[in-house]
Design a binder for these strands. Structure first.
Length: 438
RNA sequence: GGAGAGAUGGCCGAGUGGUCGAAGGCGCUCCCCUGCUAAGGGAGUAUAGGCUCAAAAAGCUUAUCGAGGGUUCGAAUCCCUCUCUCUCCGCCA
């Protein structure tokens, strides 16, 4: 959520900045509502002040045993007018709030301007893509060839966009997550967290998924759910990313200055309905309703958030370096960034079968956008509470990392070499072969 | 699932219709006193808004005692709904 003060004082600038990311701010509607709000709020508060002082007088008079019917009469007519004014004000505030909650964050000045991903800018590249002297297979063929990846059965169990892994592949998937968690906790100073996978609406509003992106979420009703014909909001939503529960840990809290920065890591499944992505990446593990991710979150002092963003990206990159997987880091352009971000780096891993780089991590600074929604604050140097800055990034998407390993480490005979960094997590196993790596 | 108790400021805790944004204590800040890391005295110490103002300062004002609604001229206090916490019973990985 943007700062309403900034919208009031600097609307042209804000509108221009939002246009860069393809968002048309309803400036006229906003201005009209603001003008009305000002009048109605002043009027409401005036009536409240009258009522308060009259009531006070009644109290004083009564305690002295005086007759109060005169003052009572004076205040009698206030009731209806006050009620009407309060309702009107409430209605205006709600409309303003509705607008505000659906406005995306402003892009940082260093973000390249552009409409879509073709305008993203490569920041750096790491590693050399391996040359293959045989016809390479994509990860689906590799996994199915080893009889360790089974989309057909997954479809029977659940439907499209679900997967089933077995044997050494399931183990490798687990190994990746463990390896990432260990690296981030032991080398990068993150606190490991285990979090709820079902969250309430307040949390989703806090990080920006609600109210705008409900269609992307899976919702859950407790027990038998709403009865016939009855509208009832879902009790919970499945988390689309661990960013939601982790970041919301500081919702409605004031973090002591000396506790900053907070750095959390969590390995969770993520659930996305992928509404609006029909036909995209239908083959394989790339786009699933359920996938695992190791998520990194920083909660920091506002002065330090851009420094933290660079660190965060570096921590995610470190995983790919250790796995010896080639990647590049992209600065997303204004039009390609997510709702809550001021600045985002995507890390894209090399997928030889697609002959391209694919997103495997997305690291964003949200500045105070989420903190404002969450009322997540710290007590500043002057003793006053101020909004924190929040950042999040994947470190990494486990399923997609598995894809990268399968494709980059495949061999001519259909086996897959285990990256050296993962061997300790694979009981010393060298490769996934026809034995299935049991 | 059943029965009961509770939710007040940074913390503890009083307050059951009227100068209550809230006693008292602790903590913290400043000042005074005190010949030494003690004791004492005094003052201050919530948050988010709105309006006036070029702005700052300042002033005026509103809201907030778990959340939302209601009763009332007036609600921390009374009524209703919800959430959460605790205790006991049941069930359970």
């Amino acid at each position: 959520m943007l700062d309403i003060q900034q919208l009031r004082s600097d609307l042209d600038h804000v509108t221009r900045e939002l246009a860069k990311r393809g968002f048309a701010f309803p400036a006229d509607a906003f201005n009209a509502l603001e003008a009305e709000r000002k009048i109605v709020q002043t009027q409401t508060q005036e009536l409240q002040a009258q009522r308060n002082s009259a009531s006070k007088k009644i109290g004083q008079a009564k305690s002295k045993g005086e007759d109060v019917t005169a003052i009572m009469a004076e205040v009698a007519h206030l009731g209806d007018a006050l009620k009407a004014a309060e309702d009107h004000l409430e209605q205006i505030q709600q409309q303003l709030q509705k607008i505000l909650l659906e406005v995306p964050n402003l892009p940082h000045t260093t973000v390249p301007e552009g409409k879509d991903e073709i305008h993203n800018v490569q920041i750096r590249r790491w590693g050399e893509s391996r040359t293959f002297d045989f016809a390479i297979q994509d990860h689906v063929s590799v996994g199915e060839g080893l009889a360790l990846l089974d989309f057909e059965t997954a479809a029977k169990l659940s439907g499209a966009r679900f997967s089933l892994m077995k044997g050494g592949l399931a183990r490798l998937h687990r190994a990746l997550a463990q390896f990432m968690l260990d690296t981030h906790t032991q080398e990068h100073g993150y606190v490991e967290t285990y979090v709820p996978y079902l969250v309430n609406r307040d949390s989703l509003r806090g990080t920006g998924q609600l109210p705008k992106f409900e269609a992307d979420l899976f919702s859950v009703h407790a027990g038998s759910g709403p009865t016939e014909g009855q509208e009832k909001l879902p009790d919970y939503h499945l988390i689309p990313t661990a960013e939601v529960p982790i970041t919301n840990m500081v919702r409605d809290t004031i973090v002591p200055l000396e506790a900053l920065p907070l750095k959390f890591v969590s390995h969770t499944p993520c659930f996305r309905s992928e509404a609006g992505s029909y036909g995209r990446d239908t083959r394989g593990l790339i786009r699933q309703h359920q996938f695992d991710k190791v998520e990194l979150v920083h909660i920091v002092h506002p002065d330090q958030s851009y420094e933290a963003l660079e660190q965060l990206v570096g921590h995610a990159e470190k995983i790919l370096q250790k796995l010896e997987l080639p990647y590049r880091v992209m600065a997303l352009c204004t039009g390609d960034m997510g709702f809550s971000a001021t600045k985002t780096y995507d890390i894209e891993v090399w997928l030889p079968a697609q002959n391209t780089y694919r997103e495997i991590s997305s690291c964003s600074n949200c500045e105070a956008f989420q903190a404002r929604r969450m009322q997540a604050r710290f007590r500043g140097e002057n003793g006053k509470p101020a909004l924190l800055h929040t950042l999040n990034g994947s470190g990494l998407a486990v399923g997609r990392t598995l894809v990268a390993v399968l494709e980059n480490y495949q061999n001519a005979d259909g086996s897959v070499t285990i990256p050296a960094a993962l061997k300790p997590y694979m009981n010393g196993l060298d490769q996934l072969g026809s034995s299935g790596g049991k």
